[in-house]
Amino acid sequence: MANQTAGNIKLGAFVLSGLFVLILAFYLIGKNHNLFGSDFNIRVRFSNLNGLTVGNNVQFSGIQSGTVKKINMINDTTIEVTLSIDNKFTSYIHKNAVASIGTEGLMGNKIVNIVPSNLPSAQVTEDDLLIAQKKISTDEMLQTLSKTNNNVAVISEALKGTVLKVNGSTFMALLNDKNVSGNLLASLQNLNKASANAIKITNGIDDLIVGIKNGKGAAGVLLRDTIAAGNLQAAISSIRKASDNADSLTWQLNNLARTVNGHLNSGNGSLPMILKDSAFAKDLRATMYNLRQGTDGFNKNMEALKHNFLFRGYFKSQEKAQRKQQAVQSQ
């Protein structure tokens, strides 16, 4: 009898432990599927569920918060998904939260991700409709990738042609030429020297500028000496006065020229008569002719006077005195 009782106790413990494990498993699975505890429903409308089924998990900001409760086809492009969310998430989910269909891991089950928005909004209530975000499907990604691949193929083909052209060009020959490198080296050395000279020149200019700043040299005096600047200002003022006088003179000359020109054009006075009267010119020419004739006659009379005995002695004494003066100069 004692053995029977001990056996029964062991059997009872055995069965109870089995039941405990079974109930624990059921509880844990039920908890994961929100079977225990209160929950509320929210709805989301998608155009494509990408394989989402009833019972799939719902995550709010990456936390397991509920399951997909019901899927209802509204029309050919709209499918309404009812989500059963644990009540403790009610205070965190707002009406402007965005729902999207994602995947657990790389190849796992489909899930609904609810992501909160940054903008303020009221808390979600029973049967609210959340905004759905369209998820880019793998097919769409592959289509885009296919286009990109085609573009890459075209670009690589063009690049290949360009590279071949560059490879056969004189530019590459230039790059491969060893002499060029030597010349380039020499040029660089020269450039180095030139830059060293440039530094010297710069230093010289620097010194010069320092000198000018200190008032050394003409430029220094000009730029820095205040007395010289005053003198220069006075000189410039004098030049300006002289310029003004010259201007006045020019103006007067201009008036004179204008007056003369007016007189010339009007023909009044003696000068226009000289310049413009043709009869007067003829008379003047005849007068000049008579004057030349008279001068010739006078020369002849003077020559005759030299040979006259009355004046011959005077002219001979003049010649002797002249010869004496030349002899003294030659000695």
């Binding site: 079974l22 059921f26 844990l28 699975i29 994961n32």
Partner: peptide
Amino acid sequence: VFRSLSFGDVLPAF
């Protein structure tokens, strides 16, 4: 383990 399990896994097996 329990996140991946559902009643559809446990009940028929049981």
